[in-house]
């Protein structure tokens, strides 16, 4: 039981539980924070992230929304302009397409376009990612779209502690934040601090220190990188892993610092490789990190195709350990 933990002892928490705790703590700390989403109140959320919050905070602050994403996110913009801090949930990131106008033309623009008359402090939480044979419309990683939009902030945590800290920071932030949760992480357990605090948006975390090669990644592929790095350590290959945590803004200096140490860089993500987050990072590092590079920068992401349904196809969809190992070999052997 979490309650019986002695004070100041770290506990182990599921990713989804950490998000639930962050929402509860944020709502307790600020009565302007409220939640909207499909099946988030009575049913506690399709992935259980909002479980029991209705009981504590009531239906004014934990709202089940009809299946109507476009109005939901636009309502959040309006409520945010009215001084509230809505946290909305889009059940699968794929359905963000239905709320694109709210995010891209409204939330992202209002502060700038209206001459800084008022911020839009909304958070849109949404799960991305495949591996569940959920097919082309329930598996996509679309974060690069949002990172491309001036005015939006995009974060994507990889573990329970970061999930908590980043969600608290996102809710505190005066700007619209797209908060991306990998759906395979919800039940993953990891260490959780006794006194969790907000984590500054835009700051990466060194998930593993190493000297031979840097893997920059975020979300669930942090764990793929860690697993491969552990295996390669047995061959005396010493890999550093930078978990970006924030994608927009991203921690350019942390990546450059690591590159300056290892001189070799792989950017890894589950999202489509072409025109992706990795392209941005690789291009920046090829510019400001040019003198540090001993080898080409390698991007590793999903192939340029929709996420397929069948087990056989999705197993090869990647990125996977074999591909990552091949990239490492290319840089080091």
């Amino acid at each position: 039981m979490s309650n019986s933990q002695p004070d100041n002892q770290p506990e182990v928490l599921r990713f989804g539980q950490a998000l639930n705790r962050a929402l509860g703590d944020a709502m307790r700390a600020d009565d302007k924070v409220f939640l909207m989403g499909e099946d988030i109140a009575l049913a506690g959320g399709p992935f259980g992230v909002t479980r029991k919050l209705l009981d504590e905070f009531g239906e004014n602050r934990v709202r089940d929304y009809p299946i109507a994403e476009a109005s939901m996110v636009n309502l959040a913009v309006g409520a945010a302009l009215g001084g509230y801090k809505p946290v909305v949930e889009i059940m699968f990131m794929d359905f963000c397409t239905l709320a694109m106008d709210a995010l891209v033309n409204q939330a992202a623009k209002a502060h700038f376009m209206f001459g800084e008359q008022g911020p839009v402090p909304l958070v849109l939480r949404t799960p991305h990612g495949g591996g569940l044979n959920a097919g082309p419309q329930h598996s996509q990683c679309l974060e690069a779209w949002f990172a491309h939009i001036p005015g939006l902030i995009v974060v994507c945590p990889s573990n329970a502690a970061d999930a908590y800290g980043l969600l608290r920071a996102a809710i505190n932030d005066p700007n619209p934040v797209v908060f991306v949760e990998n759906k395979r992480l919800y039940s993953a357990k990891s260490d959780f601090p006794a006194d969790p605090q907000p984590i500054e948006i835009g700051k990466a975390r060194t998930a593993r220190a190493g000297n031979d090669l840097t893997i920059v990644t975020y979300g669930n592929t942090v764990h793929l990188a860690e697993q491969v790095a552990k295996e390669r350590a047995e061959q005396e290959i010493d890999i550093e892993i930078i978990d970006l945590r924030s994608l927009q803004p991203w921690d350019e200096s942390a990546v450059l610092t690591s590159l300056s140490k290892t001189h070799r860089l792989i950017v890894l993500h589950e999202a489509t490789e072409a025109f992706g987050i990795g392209a941005e990072i690789a291009a920046r590092m090829a510019d400001i990190g040019f003198d540090e590079l001993d080898a080409p920068i390698i991007r590793l992401g999903a192939p340029f195709m929709p996420v397929p349904y069948s087990v056989a196809l999705e197993a090869e969809f990647g990125p996977n350990a074999d591909q990552l190992n091949a990239a490492i070999d290319r840089l080091l052997l």
Partner: peptide, 28 residues
């Protein structure tokens, strides 16, 4: 999810379609 599936295993339950019988396709 087999190759002989009506959508070659790419769609699955939520995306079945058979244009030869006038199906525009299922939707997720």
């Amino acid at each position: 999810g087999r190759a002989s599936g009506i959508c070659q295993g790419r769609g699955g339950s939520m995306h079945i379609a058979d244009s030869s019988v006038g199906m525009l396709g299922a939707n997720g």
